[in-house]
């Protein structure tokens, strides 16, 4: 029980801790990549597990993943074009062929143009998204904190004492 209590406290702390702009921006970036890739592939789930291993903010990951999942189909034409280009890129063709013969890898469905394209697009967009998010969190972090600390979610997570929320 003690362990569970400690675990719950730690989980809350990831939220109330209001991590550094880097952690928040990283969360947004990872969430963006996860959200962008179609969910019938193993890639977003693998990325999700990987994200857990980072110091990225979990809430940002979740929010970004959901948000970009909605946007993702709108960008399918671009993802498809990019996927075709990547998969038919001659120097990599033999690599793809070898990869797909490995166990579990076929579950990633990377031979699908949109899966590879959206992953590529996500990776290409990672640095701009990270930079923009970082800038935004650094500049507007206090305002966001202020609004967030008054929200029901924050009260549910850390109770009525807003001082429990740490300032970054």
């Amino acid at each position: 029980m003690k362990f569970l209590n400690s675990a719950w406290s730690s989980f809350r702390s990831t939220v109330k801790g209001f991590d550094t702009p880097h952690q928040l921006a990283l969360g947004i970036t990872l969430g963006m990549v996860i959200g962008w890739v179609p969910k019938d592939s193993l890639i977003p789930y693998a990325l999700g597990v990987l994200a857990l291993l980072t110091t990225a903010n979990l809430l940002c990951i979740a929010i970004a993943a959901i948000a970009f999942s909605w946007i993702s189909p709108l960008l399918d034409p671009f993802s498809h074009q990019l996927g075709v280009w990547v998969l038919t890129f001659a120097p990599l063709e033999s690599t793809w062929s070898k990869l797909i013969q490995l166990p579990v890898v076929p579950w990633t469905r990377f031979e699908n143009t949109v899966v590879t394209g959206s992953l590529g697009l996500g990776l290409l967009m990672a640095i701009p998204i990270y930079s923009i998010s970082y800038y935004c969190f650094a500049k507007f972090g206090s305002a966001i904190y202020f609004h967030f600390s008054r929200s029901r979610v924050a009260r549910w997570l850390v109770g009525n004492n807003a001082n429990n929320l740490q300032k970054s």
């Binding site: 399918d76 063709e93 033999s94 062929s97 797909i100 469905r109 031979e111 699908n112 949109v114």
Partner: peptide
């Protein structure tokens, strides 16, 4: 209808 196309990789 699935998103994108499954490309046939060479040798597979």
């Amino acid at each position: 209808r699935q998103r994108g196309e499954n490309l046939r990789l060479p040798g597979i």
